[in-house]
């Protein structure tokens, strides 16, 4: 059991950071609130869905309402950057004209407009990370959950990405970011939740 007695509420439209040492349980918590793992006990409510009693057919409905940046990116290796970023729109059946336009927009925002036709393996770690960020944002999710989204980026790029997240947050998306980057956390002055050994020790 990687999490114990976690009791946490993040308000709609809020932007919060999750920090803590490696192995503290940040990713575990994110898996819980993004319907990656089914909660074994307790109640988890995100974007109006009660994840503890989520029916199988509701799982995709819920996942379309949130945007997730996975710590290990989870890009489709055999697909192009375009196809990777288009995924959240493709699975809900958006028209191809809209998809093309939105993919171009969001890739522009992360500075990768020129790499649409490449495969993930042709990109650097930081570039892949930005593809994952673009994919998490393209469908304007109600909640953005980003696990270590700037871990592979240089300080300048990290700042730009954080500004992008603030912009998205200003448009109404709830943003929850796990990070080790104390400098960024300090500069942004947002709510910080600290976790250690599966327990929240600050910011509850």
């Amino acid at each position: 059991m990687a999490l114990r007695d976690v009791n946490l509420t993040i308000d709609k439209g809020e932007m919060a950071f999750l920090t803590g040492p490696s192995g503290a349980g940040k990713t575990t918590l994110f898996r819980m609130i993004s319907a990656y793992d089914r909660p074994t006990s307790g109640a988890v409510s995100v974007a109006g869905f009660n994840l503890a009693n989520l029916k199988s057919f509701e799982v995709p409905q819920f996942r379309r309402r949130i945007g997730v940046v996975y710590q290990d990116f989870r890009l489709l290796k055999k697909h192009t950057i375009f196809e990777n970023v288009a995924l959240p729109l493709e699975v809900r059946g958006d028209a191809s004209g809209i998809v093309t336009k939105k993919v171009a927009e969001v890739l522009e925002q992360v500075g990768l407009a020129h790499r649409q036709g490449d495969k993930p393996e042709q990109l650097s770690g930081g570039e892949q990370q930005r593809v994952a960020i673009a994919r998490a944002l393209i469908h304007q999710p109600a909640v953005l959950i980003a696990d270590e989204p700037t871990g592979n980026l240089d300080p300048q790029l990290s700042l730009e990405i954080m500004e992008l997240f603030e912009k998205v947050n200003a448009q109404g998306t709830t943003v929850f970011i796990a990070t080790h980057d104390v400098e960024i956390v300090r500069r942004k002055g947002k709510r910080v939740i600290e976790i250690n050994q599966g327990q929240i020790i600050r910011g509850q």
């Binding site: 993004s34 990656y36 199988s56 057919f57 799982v59 995709p60 409905q61 996942r63 379309r64 997730v68 996975y70 989870r74 890009l75 489709l76 290796k77 055999k78 995924l87 959240p88 699975v91 809900r92 994919r135």
Partner: peptide, 16 residues
């Protein structure tokens, strides 16, 4: 397998 998991994580229904 990996790919199917990613599709699901981004909201693909079982029929997709």
């Amino acid at each position: 397998r990996d790919e199917i998991e990613i599709l699901e994580l981004f909201g693909a229904t079982s029929w997709y």
